[in-house]
Simulated assay, not measured.
Amino acid sequence: MQTGFDDFLTLEVNNLHVDVLTGIYSEETHLPQPLRISIRARLRIADHYDQDTPLNQSKNYMDLKHAASTALPEGMHFTLIEAVADHIIDTIMMQDDKVSHVEVKIVKLALSERGEEIGITLGRGRK
């Protein structure tokens, strides 16, 4: 069975709280900043999923969490949160060639005064 054009599988990990060295202002560059990171990874899908479909026909959700936490280089300063998102995307793309597109949303929690979500969303497709 051939999958249709509109068929897709998106794995999601939302609202991870991660402290990352990032920023351009002197008050930002010496201490990690709290970020809220959400990831959506679109995968090429299997023809069909049934009760016996093995994990290798999908992807482990924890790989996405790892890319936004333990895979970030400890002690590395990212000037822009865009670079943090790019690093996460690169990590996920390298993990699995079934991943066709990754979207990373990063909210800078230190800038939020009344629950605003101030940040970026970066998406990249496999080239």
Rank of each mutant, 00 (worst) to 15 (best):
T79H: 15
V107R: 00
R40S: 04
E12I: 06
K127H: 06
I106G: 01
A71I: 09
M62E: 13
S100Y: 12
L43D: 01
L16C: 06
L111H: 14
N60T: 07
E12P: 02
L64E: 10
D97A: 15
H87M: 07
A83H: 07
A41S: 03
I92A: 05
I92S: 00
L122S: 14
T22E: 04
G125P: 08
I88W: 02
L11S: 04
K98D: 07
K108T: 06
N60P: 06
V104N: 02
H66Q: 12
L9R: 02
H101L: 15
I81P: 01
I88Y: 01
T70M: 09
I89M: 03
V20Y: 02
F78N: 04
H30I: 08
T91Q: 11
T121W: 14
L64M: 08
M62K: 10
D47K: 11
P34G: 03
Y49D: 04
D52M: 03
M76K: 13
A67Q: 08
I120Q: 15
D90M: 05
D47E: 10
V84C: 05
L16W: 02
I92H: 02
G4E: 13
D52S: 07
T53C: 05
Y61R: 06
M62G: 10
S69I: 08
S100D: 12
L31S: 03
I88M: 04
K59I: 07
D19M: 03
E116G: 11
Y61I: 14
D96S: 12
Y61F: 09
T29N: 14
L72P: 04
T53P: 00
Q57F: 04
N56Q: 14
A110R: 14
H66K: 14
H30T: 11
S58D: 09
